[in-house]
Write a protein that binds this DNA or RNA. Structure first.
Lengths: 215, 215
DNA sequence: GCCGCTATTGGACCTTGGGCCAACAAAGGC
DNA sequence: GCCTTTGTTGGCCCAAGGTCCAATAGCGGC
């Protein structure tokens, strides 16, 4: 059903829960990996994810709680959507989990189809964020290939400034701006200012430096 | 403290709760309006909000529930951030509320400072969304002022197409495209293609029509 | 029928952007 | 000292955009 093999990480201190959830996941045609604690998950899952995945996490666990795990995941390269499950969760925890971006928060006992739907949603989200990340990192790589001056010029270009104006701002001659402009378009792999503005928007590249310079 | 007078709508079927929450809100320097039911709120709050506001809503009420109220609010011109309070809320309700965009979900009895913090956050959000809405509606007004042809041309412009290419796509002469292009920039109140791309991005104007035309 | 809006086109002219070739200078690595 | 990178500038030419002028044609409304 999925276009590529997706993995569900199951983090629960109760081994039997891990086992039954893993079975459920595998019956749905997905891969499953189980972890007995948040620490174990963080220790073993350090590689950046290259394939869609999500985590089904128990709220209450000895050691690091599910909430804490989620918080750390956000900063890790292995960030993936989290689905919480809990037998005795409270509303404040639920609120915190959801505010931190959890897909949902299920209370035991829950309907298995409910969990599978949540997993589907989580994987969908992760796929979307992965393609977005890929696009963004590809663009950032191009930006890194620019020299400082080129970045500076680019910041002005995407404001719609004329070469003449940019030249005045940078105290250089218009001809030089033209050269930088050409290099920017070439290195950023776009063929028009319109496209350049778009790709810059994707990575939130705003002419902040240019503004600082003005001030 | 707030730059402009902000209002907190309090929706609770328990009159004494309404009264005490209203007092709390007013002591914090904000306006308060109370409603005894979701229906009453929806009946009385029909005008589009012109000033920052948020709603503090009880989950359980006779008639329309808080969740239902929130759902209707999303489609209404009086949409504002919602803070839920409940004495006996459950986790599924909390999850649904948060997924629908609730700021938070507080359980009675709650700390008053907690509520005030939530209100602050909700008002902050609402202010941000109001300025975003204003920007967007101002831009949409300009788009509505464009003729069909101009919109068509604009769709091509923001892809970075040359006048020559646009002319070929629309089976007209390059000169005509220039005229439309000038009108578009004028009516959209921008002075460059870069700015045009930006304002179109704000209102999610994508050259979809152009793509359809090609197909 | 006249008026106004829209779309269309033409011409002339100027400004701007972009490509191509060449050159120089400062900085840093070998 | 030589080489590469980076930033800078020059000239030349062409393509593209922008701005004036003016004109024609269809279409709906008064």
């Amino acid at each position: 059903m999925s276009p590529e093999p997706a993995t569900v990480f199951i983090v629960d201190d109760d081994f039997s829960v891990c086992r039954s959830l893993a079975r459920l996941v595998r019956q749905a045609g997905l891969r499953a990996e189980t972890f007995g604690s948040a620490e174990e998950f963080l220790r073993l899952q350090t590689d950046p994810l290259t394939r869609p995945a999500c985590a089904v996490v128990d709220l209450h666990m000895p050691g690091l709680s599910g909430i804490e795990l989620q918080k750390r995941l956000c900063d890790s390269p292995a960030a993936c959507p989290v689905i919480f499950i809990s037998g005795n969760g409270d509303i404040p925890s639920t609120v915190q989990a959801m505010r931190q971006g959890a897909v949902t928060f299920l209370t035991k006992p829950f309907d298995t189809t409910e969990l599978l739907h949540a997993i589907e949603e989580a994987l969908r989200k992760h796929r979307a964020s992965m393609v977005a990340d890929h696009r963004a990192s590809a663009i950032l790589a191009r930006v890194n290939d620019l020299t400082e001056r080129e970045i500076e010029v680019m910041a002005w270009i995407i404001t719609g400034a004329l070469n003449k104006q940019i030249a005045a701002e940078l105290n250089i001659v218009e001809k030089t701006v033209k050269v930088h402009r050409a290099r920017v378009l070439e290195k950023m792999q776009v063929s028009s200012v319109a496209e350049l503005v778009r790709v810059c928007a994707v990575v939130n590249f705003a002419p902040a430096k240019a503004a600082e310079r003005k001030a």
